[in-house]
Amino acid sequence: MREIIFDTETTGLDPRSGDRMVEIGCIEMINRVPTGAVFHAYFHPDRDMPAGAEAVHGLSIGFLSDKPRFHEKAAELLEFLGDAKLVAHNAGFDFAFLDAELAMCGLDPVCRSRMVDTVQLARVRHPGAKLSLDALCTRYGIDRSHRTRHGALLDAELLAQVYVELTGGRQIGLGLADEVEALVDSVVETVRNRVFRPARPHSASAAELAAHSAFLDTIKEPLWAT
Protein backbone atom coordinates (compact mmCIF):
# COMPACT_ATOMS: atom_id res chain seq x y z
CA MET A 1 0.00 0.00 0.00
CA ARG A 2 1.61 3.22 -1.20
CA GLU A 3 0.74 6.54 0.41
CA ILE A 4 2.13 10.05 0.12
CA ILE A 5 2.27 12.24 3.22
CA PHE A 6 2.47 15.88 2.17
CA ASP A 7 2.30 19.46 3.36
CA THR A 8 2.31 22.86 1.69
CA GLU A 9 3.31 26.41 2.56
CA THR A 10 1.49 29.31 0.96
CA THR A 11 1.24 33.09 0.74
CA GLY A 12 -2.05 33.05 2.63
CA LEU A 13 -5.21 31.13 3.39
CA ASP A 14 -7.33 31.24 0.24
CA PRO A 15 -6.26 30.46 -3.35
CA ARG A 16 -9.50 32.02 -4.60
CA SER A 17 -8.24 35.43 -3.45
CA GLY A 18 -4.92 35.07 -5.26
CA ASP A 19 -2.85 33.25 -2.65
CA ARG A 20 -0.28 30.83 -4.06
CA MET A 21 1.63 27.75 -3.01
CA VAL A 22 5.32 28.45 -2.33
CA GLU A 23 6.52 25.08 -1.01
CA ILE A 24 5.48 21.44 -1.07
CA GLY A 25 7.04 18.51 0.75
CA CYS A 26 6.03 14.90 0.05
CA ILE A 27 7.15 11.65 1.69
CA GLU A 28 6.51 8.20 0.26
CA MET A 29 5.35 5.44 2.59
CA ILE A 30 4.77 1.77 1.79
CA ASN A 31 2.64 -0.05 4.34
CA ARG A 32 3.13 2.89 6.74
CA VAL A 33 6.94 2.69 6.48
CA PRO A 34 8.88 5.63 4.93
CA THR A 35 10.87 4.46 1.91
CA GLY A 36 13.25 7.43 1.87
CA ALA A 37 11.78 8.73 -1.39
CA VAL A 38 10.72 12.39 -1.16
CA PHE A 39 9.64 15.24 -3.39
CA HIS A 40 10.42 18.74 -2.19
CA ALA A 41 10.22 22.02 -4.07
CA TYR A 42 9.95 25.77 -3.56
CA PHE A 43 7.98 27.90 -6.03
CA HIS A 44 8.10 31.54 -7.08
CA PRO A 45 4.54 32.79 -6.43
CA ASP A 46 4.57 35.72 -8.90
CA ARG A 47 3.23 37.99 -6.17
CA ASP A 48 4.28 39.57 -2.89
CA MET A 49 4.71 37.66 0.36
CA PRO A 50 2.50 39.04 3.16
CA ALA A 51 4.39 39.66 6.37
CA GLY A 52 2.05 37.38 8.32
CA ALA A 53 2.73 34.42 6.03
CA GLU A 54 6.49 35.02 6.06
CA ALA A 55 6.44 35.06 9.85
CA VAL A 56 4.93 31.57 9.81
CA HIS A 57 7.24 29.84 7.34
CA GLY A 58 10.13 32.26 6.90
CA LEU A 59 10.03 32.20 3.09
CA SER A 60 10.69 35.66 1.69
CA ILE A 61 10.27 36.83 -1.87
CA GLY A 62 14.03 37.35 -1.94
CA PHE A 63 14.57 33.66 -1.15
CA LEU A 64 11.95 32.56 -3.68
CA SER A 65 13.09 34.91 -6.45
CA ASP A 66 15.20 32.30 -8.25
CA LYS A 67 12.87 29.36 -7.64
CA PRO A 68 10.85 27.72 -10.44
CA ARG A 69 7.18 28.43 -11.09
CA PHE A 70 4.76 25.65 -10.19
CA HIS A 71 4.10 24.75 -13.83
CA GLU A 72 7.78 23.98 -14.30
CA LYS A 73 7.64 21.22 -11.65
CA ALA A 74 4.02 20.07 -12.07
CA ALA A 75 4.79 17.01 -14.23
CA GLU A 76 7.53 15.86 -11.85
CA LEU A 77 5.24 16.30 -8.86
CA LEU A 78 2.36 14.39 -10.45
CA GLU A 79 4.70 11.57 -11.42
CA PHE A 80 5.84 11.30 -7.81
CA LEU A 81 2.28 11.34 -6.48
CA GLY A 82 1.16 8.66 -8.93
CA ASP A 83 -2.18 7.17 -7.91
CA ALA A 84 -1.33 6.87 -4.19
CA LYS A 85 -3.54 8.05 -1.38
CA LEU A 86 -2.57 11.58 -0.29
CA VAL A 87 -2.38 12.21 3.45
CA ALA A 88 -2.33 15.74 4.87
CA HIS A 89 -3.24 17.53 8.09
CA ASN A 90 -6.37 19.59 7.47
CA ALA A 91 -6.16 18.14 3.98
CA GLY A 92 -8.88 20.31 2.46
CA PHE A 93 -6.56 23.32 2.76
CA ASP A 94 -3.65 21.63 0.98
CA PHE A 95 -5.87 20.08 -1.68
CA ALA A 96 -7.44 23.47 -2.44
CA PHE A 97 -4.03 24.99 -3.14
CA LEU A 98 -2.80 21.97 -5.09
CA ASP A 99 -5.93 21.97 -7.25
CA ALA A 100 -5.67 25.73 -7.82
CA GLU A 101 -2.08 25.43 -9.01
CA LEU A 102 -2.97 22.49 -11.27
CA ALA A 103 -5.88 24.46 -12.72
CA MET A 104 -3.55 27.32 -13.65
CA CYS A 105 -1.51 24.74 -15.56
CA GLY A 106 -4.60 23.50 -17.38
CA LEU A 107 -4.48 20.21 -15.47
CA ASP A 108 -7.26 18.28 -13.75
CA PRO A 109 -7.75 18.49 -9.97
CA VAL A 110 -6.75 15.61 -7.72
CA CYS A 111 -9.64 13.23 -7.03
CA ARG A 112 -10.97 13.77 -3.53
CA SER A 113 -11.35 10.01 -3.07
CA ARG A 114 -7.56 9.94 -2.62
CA MET A 115 -7.64 12.41 0.28
CA VAL A 116 -6.91 11.26 3.83
CA ASP A 117 -7.26 14.01 6.44
CA THR A 118 -5.35 13.32 9.65
CA VAL A 119 -7.40 15.95 11.47
CA GLN A 120 -10.49 13.85 10.83
CA LEU A 121 -8.69 10.67 11.85
CA ALA A 122 -7.50 12.34 15.05
CA ARG A 123 -10.99 13.65 15.80
CA VAL A 124 -12.32 10.08 15.68
CA ARG A 125 -9.39 8.67 17.64
CA HIS A 126 -9.22 11.46 20.26
CA PRO A 127 -12.59 13.23 20.49
CA GLY A 128 -12.44 16.55 22.29
CA ALA A 129 -8.63 16.71 22.29
CA LYS A 130 -6.43 19.32 20.61
CA LEU A 131 -5.84 18.32 17.00
CA SER A 132 -2.96 20.53 15.85
CA LEU A 133 0.18 18.84 14.55
CA ASP A 134 2.10 20.13 17.56
CA ALA A 135 -0.51 18.73 19.96
CA LEU A 136 -0.47 15.33 18.28
CA CYS A 137 3.33 15.22 18.34
CA THR A 138 3.19 15.90 22.07
CA ARG A 139 0.54 13.21 22.59
CA TYR A 140 2.62 10.60 20.80
CA GLY A 141 6.01 11.67 22.13
CA ILE A 142 7.34 12.73 18.73
CA ASP A 143 10.33 15.10 18.95
CA ARG A 144 9.60 18.41 17.26
CA SER A 145 12.29 20.47 19.02
CA HIS A 146 13.88 21.26 15.64
CA ARG A 147 10.62 22.77 14.36
CA THR A 148 11.10 26.47 15.00
CA ARG A 149 9.00 27.45 11.97
CA HIS A 150 6.62 25.75 9.61
CA GLY A 151 8.29 23.99 6.69
CA ALA A 152 6.54 21.70 4.21
CA LEU A 153 9.05 18.84 4.23
CA LEU A 154 9.69 18.99 7.97
CA ASP A 155 5.97 19.06 8.73
CA ALA A 156 5.41 16.14 6.35
CA GLU A 157 8.10 14.17 8.20
CA LEU A 158 6.41 14.87 11.54
CA LEU A 159 2.99 14.08 10.10
CA ALA A 160 4.24 10.75 8.77
CA GLN A 161 5.12 9.74 12.34
CA VAL A 162 1.78 11.01 13.64
CA TYR A 163 -0.07 9.12 10.90
CA VAL A 164 1.60 5.86 11.89
CA GLU A 165 0.47 6.40 15.49
CA LEU A 166 -3.07 7.39 14.46
CA THR A 167 -3.43 4.21 12.42
CA GLY A 168 -2.12 1.66 14.85
CA GLY A 169 1.40 2.59 15.85
CA ARG A 170 4.44 0.42 15.35
CA GLN A 171 2.39 -2.77 15.28
CA ILE A 172 1.68 -2.02 11.63
CA GLY A 173 4.90 -3.88 10.92
CA LEU A 174 3.37 -7.09 12.32
CA GLY A 175 1.26 -7.59 9.23
CA LEU A 176 -1.77 -5.49 10.14
CA ALA A 177 -1.48 -3.12 7.17
CA ASP A 178 -4.58 -4.48 5.41
CA GLU A 179 -6.71 -4.15 8.54
CA VAL A 180 -5.50 -0.60 9.18
CA GLU A 181 -6.08 0.38 5.56
CA ALA A 182 -9.66 -0.81 5.90
CA LEU A 183 -10.03 1.26 9.08
CA VAL A 184 -8.70 4.40 7.39
CA ASP A 185 -10.96 3.86 4.39
CA SER A 186 -13.93 3.45 6.71
CA VAL A 187 -13.19 6.67 8.62
CA VAL A 188 -12.58 8.65 5.44
CA GLU A 189 -15.79 7.36 3.86
CA THR A 190 -17.79 8.11 7.01
CA VAL A 191 -16.52 11.69 7.14
CA ARG A 192 -17.08 12.20 3.42
CA ASN A 193 -20.70 11.01 3.59
CA ARG A 194 -21.60 12.63 6.90
CA VAL A 195 -24.91 14.48 6.86
CA PHE A 196 -24.73 17.56 9.07
CA ARG A 197 -27.89 18.40 10.98
CA PRO A 198 -29.15 21.98 10.85
CA ALA A 199 -28.74 24.02 14.00
CA ARG A 200 -31.63 23.67 16.43
CA PRO A 201 -33.60 26.83 17.27
CA HIS A 202 -32.81 28.19 20.72
CA SER A 203 -35.27 31.08 20.93
CA ALA A 204 -37.31 31.25 24.13
CA SER A 205 -41.03 30.59 23.82
CA ALA A 206 -43.66 33.16 24.84
CA ALA A 207 -44.40 31.13 28.00
CA GLU A 208 -40.70 31.02 28.92
CA LEU A 209 -40.34 34.76 28.40
CA ALA A 210 -43.38 35.40 30.59
CA ALA A 211 -42.04 33.14 33.34
CA HIS A 212 -38.68 34.89 33.21
CA SER A 213 -40.33 38.32 33.45
CA ALA A 214 -42.40 37.18 36.41
CA PHE A 215 -39.29 35.91 38.16
CA LEU A 216 -37.49 39.24 37.64
CA ASP A 217 -40.43 41.05 39.21
CA THR A 218 -39.82 39.16 42.45
CA ILE A 219 -36.28 40.54 42.82
CA LYS A 220 -36.13 43.60 45.04
CA GLU A 221 -33.81 46.45 44.06
CA PRO A 222 -32.03 44.61 41.22
CA LEU A 223 -28.59 45.90 40.29
CA TRP A 224 -29.54 46.40 36.65
CA ALA A 225 -32.25 48.89 37.66
CA THR A 226 -29.82 51.29 39.42
Results as ranks from 00 to 15, higher is better:
R125E: 10
A160W: 01
D134S: 12
A129M: 12
S132L: 10
R144H: 15
H126W: 13
P127C: 05
T148Y: 07
Q120M: 14
R147K: 13
H126A: 09
A156R: 08
R139Y: 03
A135L: 02
I142L: 09
K130W: 06
R139T: 12
D155T: 08
R149D: 04
L131A: 13
R144N: 15
H146N: 12
Q120N: 09
D143T: 08
I142P: 13
A122W: 13
D143K: 13
D155G: 02
L131D: 05
D134V: 13
I142H: 14
A152D: 10
G128N: 12
V124W: 02
T118S: 02
C137M: 11
L133A: 10
Q161G: 00
R144F: 10
T148A: 04
V116A: 03
I142R: 09
T138L: 12
T148C: 04
P127W: 00
C137A: 15
K130Q: 14
A122R: 08
L159V: 09
D134E: 15
V116E: 00
A160V: 03
A152I: 02
S132F: 11
L131T: 14
Y140D: 00
H150I: 09
I142G: 10
Q161K: 15
R125Q: 11
L159W: 01
H126M: 05
G141P: 08
R147F: 02
L158M: 11
L154D: 07
D143G: 14
L159C: 12
L159T: 04
E157R: 05
V119P: 01
H150F: 11
Y140G: 11
D155L: 08
T148G: 08
R149W: 10
I142M: 11
G151P: 02
G151C: 14
L158T: 05
T138Y: 07
L133K: 07
C137S: 09
S132H: 11
R144S: 14
A129G: 01
I142C: 05
T118P: 07
K130G: 01
L131C: 02
R125W: 00
K130I: 03
Q161W: 10
T118Q: 01
Q120C: 10
V119F: 15
S145G: 07
R123A: 15
R147W: 08
Q120I: 13
A160Q: 03
E157G: 05
H150R: 08
D155S: 13
L153C: 11
R147E: 04
G151I: 01
K130D: 14
A135K: 01
A156P: 03
G141I: 05
L154P: 05
R149I: 07
T118E: 01
L158Y: 14
C137G: 11
D117T: 09
V116M: 04
A156L: 08
D155N: 03
R139V: 04
T118N: 00
L121T: 06
V119M: 15
H150W: 12
L158K: 10
A152N: 02
C137Y: 10
A135H: 00
L158P: 03
D155A: 01
A135R: 06
V119A: 06
R125P: 00
T148F: 06
H126S: 03
D155C: 09
Q120T: 12
H126D: 04
H146P: 00
Q161I: 00
V119I: 15
A156H: 07
